[in-house]
Design a protein around this nucleic acid. Structure first.
Lengths: 198, 198, 198, 198
DNA sequence: AATGAATGAGCCTTCATTCAT
DNA sequence: GATGAATGAAGGCTCATTCAT
C-alpha cells in the first residue's frame, strides 16, 4: 500500500530509473555514468535495474526510443496540417526548437551518445532518424516544386542546415539567457524561411 | 641517420601519437579509446607516451589546441581582408565548412569530447572558442550596422545558426556523397547570406 | 550451510582480507605489498576487496583502528584499577609490552606505516594516540604529585622513554629468543619503575 | 672553473644527490620517493645519478653507511675515555641522543627503511649495528661487574631499552618544542642511569 | 520482485633502469 | 661525464554483469 503514497514510491521503478539515467547521461556522458550512480539516483538497487533492463545500453536505447517517438509525432502533426506549405514548414521548424529546448537533456544525449549504441541498435535509430529527416525534407521539396521556396539549395542540405542549429542548441542555449525558447524558435524558423525566399 | 628513413621512424613520436589519438578518438570516442590502443597504433610503448604527454587528457587537449589555432588563423585572415563585408562573411563562412570537412576527425572530436576535459582545460577551450565566435559575430554586426544585412535576428543567434550546421557536418557528411566539400561550403554560405538579405 | 564448514569459507571475507593484509604489511611493508598479493593470500578476487574496502589505504586504517581500540581498552582497565599508583603504572607498562609482543605484526605496522595514511586519517590516528599517551602520563604525574615518583624528569618524557622501548620491540624481539614475553615485560616495567624511584 | 663558484656547482654531484635523497627519503619514505624527484632536487639528470650510483638502493645504502660510521666513531670515543664507567655510559647515552636529534632525517630513515635494502645489504647493516650495540652493552656489563650498576636486568635488554627511546625520537621530537636537544639528552641519560642504580 | 556479494577483465599511470649519443 | 628518450613490468582501482538467496 505504501506504493500509492508520495515520495520515491510514487513513480514506478522503471520510470525512475529512466529519469535518473537521462539526467546523468546528459550531465556526465554515457561512459562516465556508472550503473551504481544510476541506481543510487533512482533509489533502487542494481538487482532492480537488471530486473527491468537487460543492460546499461538498453537504458540508453529507451531514451532514444522515447525522443524519436515524440519528435516524429509532433512533426507529423504539423506536416499534415491544412495550411500553406510555408506555414507548415515554419511551424514544424519552430516546434522542434521548442521541444528540443524543453528537453535539452534528451537532446544532448541524442547526438553525443549515439556511437555508444551497438551497431544494430545504432542502425535502427538511424533508420528512424532518416524517416524523420525525409518527412521534413518533403516539406521543403513541396515548397520548391510549388515555387514558394528558392530551388538554389538541394533540399537535403536545407534540412541538415536547420537540424544542425537544433543539434547545436544543447551547446549554447541556457534557460537563464535573454531569449525564451519561443523567441529562439521564432528566430531560427525565420532564418530558415528567409533563406528559402526565392 | 636511420631516423631520416621511411616507415614508422619517419615522423617524430609525439606527432605519431597525436595522429593516432586523433583518429581513434574520432572513431570510437575518447572514453572508448584506451591508451594501449593509441600506443599500438603509433607503434610505440606506453612509457613513450607518458614521456611526452602528461596524461591521456593532455593528448586530447593538444588536439583542441591545434584545431583552435588553425581555425582562428583562417578566420582572422578572411575577416581582415580588404573586401565588402558580404564577401568577407561569405568567404569566412565557406572556409570554415571546407576546413571542417577536410578535418572531419578533429571536428567530431571537438564537440563530442569537450566534457572529457577537466573543468579548467574546458574553460580555457571555451574562452578561445568564444573569441572565435565574437570575431565572426562582429562581421554580422558590421553588415547589419551598414545596412547590407537584415537586423531581424540578433547577431549571436545568426552565428550559432551557422556554426550549428558546421558542427553537424561530422554527423552527415560523407566524402563519397554527391557533393564536394567546396559545393557544400558554397551552399551553406549561400543559405547564410540569403537569410541575412534585408 | 556450506558457509559454516571449515576451510576458507569459515571466516567472513572482510576478516580474511584484514588478516592477510596485516601479515603482509608487517612482513613487507605497506608499499611493497600489492593488492594482488593480499587478495591471493585471502583467497578472494580484487573485486571482493573493493566491495568491502574503499581502498588499500582503508585496509591499513582498519588495522590501526583495531590496534588503537584494543590498547586503549587495556590501558583504561589498568589505570582505573583500585591499586596504589606504582602498581597501576607497573601493570599498565608491563601489559602494553606483553600485548605488543603478542601482536608484533600490528606493532611493526603501527610505527612504520603511519606516513602512508592520508593526512586526515593520519591526524585522526595521532589524536587517538595522544589520548592514550595522556592517560599514561597522568599516572606518572599522579605518582610524582603524591611523592612516590621522582620529579626529576618531565612526565611526558618519561612516557616517551617507555613507549620508545615498546615501539622498539618489533625490531629486536624474537619469539625463539631466551626471554618470554612476560619476562621482557617485567624487566621493562622494572626499569621504568626503578628510573622513577625518588 | 665554474665548478669552484657558488650555487649548485659548489658541492660535488654525488654529495648533492646524497643530501637530496636523505631529505626526501626521510620526508616521504624510500618507496614513495622517485628517482626523478631525487635528481630534480639535486639539480642533475638521471644519467648523472646512474653514473655515480649503481641503483636507487645504493643511494640508501650510502645513507646507512654514513650514519653507522659516524655513530660508531662517537661511541668509541666516549667508551674509550679515561673516566669512571658511570660517566662513560652517561656521556655515550647522552651523545647518541644529541647526534640523533641533530640528524633526525638520518634517524627516521634508519629504522623505517631497513627492509628496503636487499637481504645481503640488510645483513651487512645488521652486523655493524650489532657491533655498535655490543660496544654499548659492554659498558653496562662493566658497570654491573664492578658493582656500580644493578644486575637486575640483562645488559642486552638495558641497551634495547635505551635505544628504543633514541629510535622513538624521530616520532615525537620537534625542534620548536620546549626542550633543547641537550636537555632531552640529559633527561634520557639520567633516566637510564637512575634505572641502573643498585 | 529484489538483493548485494563476488567476479574478472580492463584501464590509466608510475617507475627504475638502459642505451645510443 | 652526462643526457634524456624509451622500455616493460607492475600497480591500484573501476565497473557491467551474474547468481544464489
Amino acid at each position: 500500500m505504501a506504493k500509492a503514497t508520495g515520495g520515491e514510491g510514487a513513480t514506478p521503478v522503471p520510470q525512475r530509473l529512466l529519469a535518473a539515467a537521462t539526467r546523468l547521461f546528459a550531465e556526465q556522458g554515457y561512459d562516465r555514468t556508472s550503473v551504481q550512480e544510476i541506481v543510487e539516483a533512482a533509489g533502487v538497487t542494481k538487482g532492480a535495474l537488471y530486473h527491468y533492463f537487460g543492460s546499461k545500453e538498453d537504458l540508453l536505447q529507451e531514451v532514444y526510443a522515447r525522443v524519436l517517438r515524440l519528435q516524429q509525432e509532433r512533426l507529423d502533426a504539423y506536416a499534415d496540417a491544412d495550411e500553406p506549405v510555408e506555414k507548415r514548414l515554419r511551424d514544424a521548424a519552430a516546434d522542434v526548437v521548442v521541444t528540443t529546448i524543453e528537453n535539452l537533456d534528451d537532446a544532448s544525449i541524442f547526438f553525443r551518445s549515439m556511437h555508444h549504441l551497438s551497431p544494430e541498435k545504432n542502425k535502427q535509430v538511424r533508420v528512424e532518424r532518416r524517416r524523420y529527416h525525409e518527412r521534413f525534407r518533403d516539406l521543403v521539396e513541396e515548397g520548391q516544386r510549388t515555387g514558394v521556396f528558392s530551388t538554389a539549395t538541394p533540399p537535403d542540405l536545407v534540412v541538415d542546415y536547420h537540424f544542425g542549429s537544433v543539434h547545436h542548441l544543447s551547446t549554447w542555449y541556457r534557460p537563464e539567457g535573454p531569449l525564451t525558447p519561443r523567441e529562439v524558435a521564432d528566430h531560427l524558423a525565420d532564418l530558415l524561411l528567409r533563406a528559402l525566399r526565392p
